[in-house]
């Protein structure tokens, strides 16, 4: 049996593009038992949960609601916080990160296009300095660098982050259509050992197998992007992959677990 550690599990209010069906599904997630059941049914032993409210409404409100929810009663459930430059004004960065860690936060996510800031601005550099020092992982969505909407990404900006903060593990998601993005990812994976790909968008045939063959299974991280994608589709895709059992275990659980355990909060 393969056990999973999901880096990309969402809860919270409906997103504007989601249908009523998915909204209902999200509503159900407010029920603690449903979430526990969902995770157990799919052998998800650990999970990082992000609040959609922190993406769509306010990062601090959404993050805070996570901590104040009943989710903390679920064992092995951790939080990912949405982060933007405002943290620089509102909090002492060092303390904020330390306190977040104490509250089971193990990942920060950044959405510069959605929340309108430049990822390499003065403030973000200060924040990344601290995260890098603590080897705290950050998750980016490639689509946040698609300035035109035509899938031509501002890769130089991503390169700058990867280059400057090589101790900071960066997990990249592309939330679908990633099948078209390998030409962006290959050179980045060659060049930066701190880059990992989240797999829920690897939809091209044999693509998981290809990345394992080319870069090893250490560079892929399991994520469901639930409820935007059904959990079962992603777990089964790993179970069905034409790769070794060890590779499956690495992708499904070990890689993310190692990154999380590598955080040096001090």
């Amino acid at each position: 049996m393969i056990k999973f550690f999901d880096v990309n599990f969402w809860i919270g209010s409906s997103d504007y593009w989601l249908s009523s069906d998915l909204y209902n599904d999200k509503e159900k997630q407010k029920d603690l038992l449903k979430i526990k059941e969902k995770l157990k049914d799919n052998d998800i032993r650990k999970v990082l949960v992000t609040n959609k409210l922190a993406l769509n409404y306010d990062w601090d409100v959404g993050n805070g609601r996570l901590l104040n929810s009943k989710l903390s009663k679920i064992e092995n459930l951790y939080y990912s916080f949405v982060l933007n430059p405002d943290i620089y004004f509102k909090y002492d960065i060092n303390n904020y990160i330390k306190k977040a860690f104490q509250n089971k936060v193990r990942l920060f996510r950044v959405f510069p296009k959605k929340q309108l800031f430049y990822i390499n601005d003065f403030y973000m550099e200060k924040i990344f300095d601290v995260l890098s020092e603590k080897k705290f992982p950050v998750m980016l969505d490639l689509k946040q660098f698609d300035i035109t909407g035509a899938k031509y990404f501002d890769i130089n900006v991503v390169e700058t982050v990867l280059e400057k903060y090589q101790d900071m593990p960066v997990i990249m998601e592309a939330s679908l259509k990633q099948c078209m993005f390998s030409r962006y990812f290959f050179p980045l994976l060659e060049k930066f050992e701190n880059l990992y790909l989240e797999i829920s968008g690897l939809l091209l045939y044999d693509q998981i197998e290809l990345y394992v063959e080319k870069f090893g299974s250490d560079r892929l991280i399991f994520g469901t992007n639930y409820p935007n994608l059904p959990i079962e589709i992603n777990t089964n895709r790993i179970i069905l992959a034409d790769i070794s059992g060890e590779d499956k275990r690495n992708i499904a659980f070990n890689n993310l677990n190692n990154i999380i355990e590598g955080i040096e909060i001090g």
Partner: peptide, 10 residues
Amino acid sequence: PMIDIRYHIL
């Protein structure tokens, strides 16, 4: 070949 057929079966 844009999408792995396994996803659609699932």
